[in-house]
Simulated assay, not measured.
Amino acid sequence: MSRADVIGGVSGSPRTVAPQEEKSRLRTSGLLRSELLTTFRRWRTVTLLGVLAVIPVLVGIAVKIETGDGGSGGGGDGGGPAFISQITNNGLFLVFTSLAATLPFFLPMTVGVVAGDSVAGEANAGTLRYLLVAPAGRTRLLLVKFAGTMVFCFAATLVVAVFALATGAVLFPLGEVTLLSGTTVPLSEGLLRALAIAVAVAVSLAGLAALGLFISTLTNSGIAAMAATVGLLLMVQIVDTIPQLHAVQPYLFPHYWLSFADLLRDPVYWDELVKNFGLQALYTAVFGSAAWARFTVRDITA
């Protein structure tokens, strides 16, 4: 079945029978299905997910080797990579460590690549005009592109979490989870908290996804859009580490990324989590609107 058949919804169905809303829904779902199939069939996407899958395995093996002689795997106050100190006691903490290790760069880099290529890549390949003729409509197509990028955010985060959990289960014991507040909970609750953390991490990438989508509407070069998105990510990360710029740091989209650690407290500390989600919603609204404003008036020549 060609991409046109997928986008069209139900190939060969009597279009005059279905109501307008039903045809619109089928067209949108078909376009989203086509977008997801195209995204996850690309070798670039498979490679990026493969790299993310390898990272928790390498972290687990490194901790296992270092603690094999009875040494400590590190530790700290429970923030970010300090979860390493808990891995030898409970392999579930490899999930939290791996997410903390990949979140500053590896996870957002993969999202930046996918988001930056979303529109510009279609223009560069000469398929953007074809998609709009399908018919898709510019607003619908832009929403589908953002939805596809967010699906990738969840997929990438789950790849890290699942491979970390599998590696942790093989190399280390699993059991009751001692939270950062000192409370001990059953493994089942620990798994639920791990899932909640994975969802929180994926949602934390929404602002970057919207920013990458906006940049993607500015150029016909997918490589340029990907490079600009990742470059901007690195610049913002650097700004977020300079003490003299503390006044602007709370408004930077990666500032509260590691707030997911508060989900490992009893009770959960919601302050920074709410700030993080609110900041991602703000970036999504601002850059999503900017992407829509740019894309709806753009002259599509490819």
Rank of each mutant, 00 (worst) to 15 (best):
V111R: 06
I87E: 08
A120F: 03
V111G: 02
L171N: 07
S118Y: 11
F105K: 01
A147D: 13
V119M: 09
E66T: 13
D69L: 10
Y130M: 13
R138Y: 04
G137E: 00
F146Y: 14
V170R: 12
E176M: 12
A156R: 06
G91P: 00
V177M: 06
L174R: 03
M109T: 15
F163P: 00
D69R: 14
V133D: 10
G121M: 10
A136R: 06
P173D: 15
A147R: 14
K145N: 05
T178H: 14
T102K: 12
A82V: 02
R138D: 00
V160D: 01
L128R: 11
L92I: 14
I65V: 14
A136W: 10
R140I: 01
G73H: 09
L128N: 10
G121T: 12
P104S: 09
G91N: 03
A147G: 10
V111L: 07
F106R: 06
L92R: 04
L107V: 06
N90I: 06
L141D: 01
F146S: 05
R140W: 07
V170F: 14
L158V: 11
G121A: 11
F96Y: 14
G79E: 13
M109I: 13
T167C: 07
G73E: 10
T110S: 14
G168I: 12
F83R: 04
L174G: 01
V160S: 04
G70P: 01
A125F: 15
A115R: 04
G70R: 12
T97N: 02
G148A: 09
A156E: 06
L174C: 02
G68L: 03
N90C: 04
L141S: 00
A123I: 03
T88G: 06
G116P: 00
S72M: 12
V111S: 08
G112S: 08
G121F: 15
D77W: 12
G79T: 15
G126D: 09
E122F: 08
T88N: 03
I65W: 15
L94F: 01
A164R: 01
L165R: 07
K145A: 05
L143T: 08
G112H: 11
L143A: 05
A166L: 12
R129Y: 09
V119K: 04
V119H: 01
F96K: 07
T127E: 07
T110H: 10
T88L: 02
S72K: 13
N124F: 10
L142H: 07
T88F: 02
V160L: 10
